[in-house]
């Protein structure tokens, strides 16, 4: 299954190779051209010479991960997050390290030997280390080199009432949506940018947009849902099962107002449940895409995900399918519009 495959490959910012290869394989039958650029963005073009609006879909391939920055004398690995990770989610997780894919665990002092006050304190990233089971620094150096990456090892599973658990749903769910949408038969130029390095500062998207020069861009994302115990309702941001979330504003963008209005109206017309993203924190590739060259009209459509940037995030298949339906209908509407030129 597409989403399972996509979330089980690894791709830290700048090292998206596995994801890129998988996507390329998936989309090849449905597009006219595929190219990459100096940063590794994968750009797929459908109907390049067709008349009509040039529409861009964007989803980022990279995920947060850990970079090995030091090897201690006893062979334990020091690491730092690449992208935003809360260090508290890391303790006692399994990881897979480096090009040689070595198993490792993130260790911590046993509870028995902790002082009571220690248990109250969050562990900082400097106190954590990866244990590969090696004897010493020399053995570790044969397996791993500085700058290599450790990934979470979470398996994709479906559970509960239509829920999915996986790592990297942010933003492989967006990649999956774009792959599905590329299979649509449309008359205008449709370009999908599978971008790199979103998690370290929206780095790939601007570069991709510069090459594409779209009239309109839809950014497909996995976004924070905090509809969980301990969170007041007004801080949920998004809720699982209530449909795809549409962004009006975040730290990086105020989405194009007419476009947002159209999307809500369309969802209403087609009876697709949809929610506003009820928070302005965070940022997505939309921020860079909007401001490239003379400006681009942008909207962000996101699948709500609980526990993003952690080893196991959770989403609802209903929202994923809802996002697909909404965008599919929107693209079809564009075909019928004459005012777009």
């Amino acid at each position: 299954m597409l989403l399972a495959q996509l979330t089980e490959v690894n791709g830290a910012p700048g090292q998206e190779g596995e994801v890129r290869n998988l996507i390329r394989e998936q989309i090849e039958p449905f597009v006219d051209e595929i190219k990459t650029d100096a940063l590794g963005n994968l750009i797929a073009i459908k109907n390049p010479r067709a008349i009509g609006p040039k529409v861009m879909l964007a989803a980022h391939m990279d995920e947060v991960a850990l970079m090995i920055v030091g090897i201690k004398n006893n062979g334990m690995l020091e690491f730092r997050p690449i992208g935003g990770i809360d260090p508290r989610v890391l303790v006692a997780k399994t990881v897979i390290v480096g090009k040689k894919k070595i198993n490792g665990v993130i260790g911590a002092k046993p509870i028995h030997l902790q002082r009571p006050d220690e248990r109250e304190k969050a562990l900082s990233i400097q106190e954590l280390y990866i244990d590969m089971g090696v004897k010493d620094k020399e053995e570790a150096k044969r397996l791993v080199s500085l700058g290599e990456i450790a990934y979470f090892t979470t398996k994709y599973e479906e559970f509960g009432e239509g829920k999915v658990k996986a790592k990297a749903l942010d933003d492989r769910v967006g990649c999956a949506l774009a792959i599905r949408l590329l299979q649509e038969d449309l008359s205008f130029p449709l370009i999908a940018a599978f971008t790199v390095q979103e998690e370290v500062g929206l780095r790939g998207a601007g570069v991709a947009t510069y090459q594409i020069k779209p009239d309109l861009a839809l950014i497909l994302e996995g976004t924070t849902a905090s509809d969980v115990p301990g969170t007041d309702e007004h801080k949920h941001a998004t809720s699982l099962g209530k449909g795809p979330a549409i962004t009006f504003m975040d730290r990086a963008v105020i989405t194009h107002p007419p476009l947002v209005k159209e999307l809500f109206a369309l969802a209403n017309e087609k009876n697709i449940p949809v929610q506003a993203r009820r928070n302005t924190a965070g940022g997505t590739d939309a921020g860079q895409i909007q401001l490239t060259e003379s400006g681009t009209k942008v909207a962000v459509i996101a699948v709500p995900c609980r526990y993003i940037h952690s080893p196991a995030s959770v989403m609802s298949k209903k929202d994923y399918d809802g996002a697909y339906e909404l965008i599919k209908h929107y693209l079809r509407c564009l075909e019928e519009r004459e005012d777009f030129q």
Binding site: E233, H234, F248, M249, R278, N279, T280
Partner: peptide, 17 residues
């Protein structure tokens, strides 16, 4: 400001712009 939530009693929550 931008409205982010409307509660049962009709009060609005918001973020700043």
């Amino acid at each position: 400001v931008v409205v982010t939530h409307i509660d049962k009693e009709g009060f609005l929550r918001f973020a700043t712009v």
